[in-house]
């Protein structure tokens, strides 16, 4: 099972800044393990972030995004206590959803 994300959302001057850390290997499929076998590709492909149910970001990743991906973005609006929900899905069909309240 995938490990939880760390989501930080903070509102300031009418803008909410969201920072997300995801726990994921982001295997490129081009790396060999110690016995010389290719490690199969395993990476997050899609991510959406919503605020109060409205989509605020739609992202697609390739395997070139770093292991344990980091993402930061900003949207207009957002009040203390509002929910920001982030969902990712990877190329093996695993997914993970976490949420944070805006600080």
């Amino acid at each position: 099972m995938a490990n939880p994300m760390k989501i930080r959302a903070a509102a300031k001057d009418g803008v909410t800044e969201v920072k997300v850390l995801m726990s994921h290997e982001m295997e490129t499929g081009q790396r060999k393990d110690s016995s010389g076998n290719l490690v199969p590709a395993h990476f997050i492909t899609e991510l959406t972030a919503t605020w109060n149910g409205k989509t605020v970001l739609d992202a697609q990743f390739g395997p070139a995004v770093s292991k344990n991906p980091y993402l930061a973005f900003k949207f207009k609006g957002g009040a203390k206590g509002d929910k920001v929900v982030v969902t990712w899905k990877d190329n093996k069909g695993d997914s993970r959803t976490d949420e944070a309240a805006i600080a």
């Binding site: 490990n3 939880p4 994300m5 760390k6 920072k19 850390l21 995801m22 726990s23 292991k67 344990n68 980091y70 930061a72």
Partner: peptide
Amino acid sequence: ADGNPSELFALQ
């Protein structure tokens, strides 16, 4: 340094 993935380990 901002967004140190060690936060993910600390969470666990």
